[in-house]
């Protein structure tokens, strides 16, 4: 693989790096809050993927410059970034926030119920109660 290809696709490398970092945190950490953080990083990497693919080199913001009512020949030729992925990701960010807040709310209640946020401690408490039953 040539360096060129590597450099020209740098946005993908960033996305993949972030994604793996997030995924790793998600899997390896036993602390529930850290898991949520990992999930956030993971989701953010996908946001980056969407946003970067809407970008077109040399493109302008997608705003019509010429008189839209005239027969402005320039309209069709102006290079602009694709706005749709950005809009989509606005939605996805909202979803991400909702997920995070539900996750945090659950974490608070788990802390109330078990007195800890560490997964292995929760499992231990559970094993004890189950044995007690």
């Amino acid at each position: 693989m040539s360096v060129d290809l590597f450099v020209s696709h740098y946005n993908y490398w960033v996305v993949i790096f972030l994604m793996m970092v997030g995924f790793y945190i998600l899997i390896s950490r036993g602390n529930l809050i850290k898991k949520i953080v990992g999930l956030n990083v993971f989701q953010t990497s996908v946001f980056m993927l969407y946003i970067s693919m809407g970008k077109i080199t040399g493109g302008t913001p997608p705003i019509l410059l010429d008189d839209p009512h005239g027969e402005g020949e320039a309209v069709g030729h102006v290079l602009y970034s694709n706005p749709l992925p950005h809009v989509l990701i606005l939605t996805a960010i909202v979803v991400g926030i909702a997920t995070t807040s539900v996750g945090l709310a659950l974490a608070v209640r788990i802390k109330e119920a078990y007195g800890t946020l560490e997964e292995d401690e929760i499992n231990r408490v559970e094993a004890q109660t189950e044995a007690a039953e």
């Binding site: 999930l39 997920t99 974490a107 788990i110």
Partner: peptide
Amino acid sequence: ALTAAFRYLIMGSVGATFIVIGIG
């Protein structure tokens, strides 16, 4: 129920994110 929901949340969100990647 809380831990079950939390676990579902983590796995479900990962699944949903995978779907977003695919759609993208």
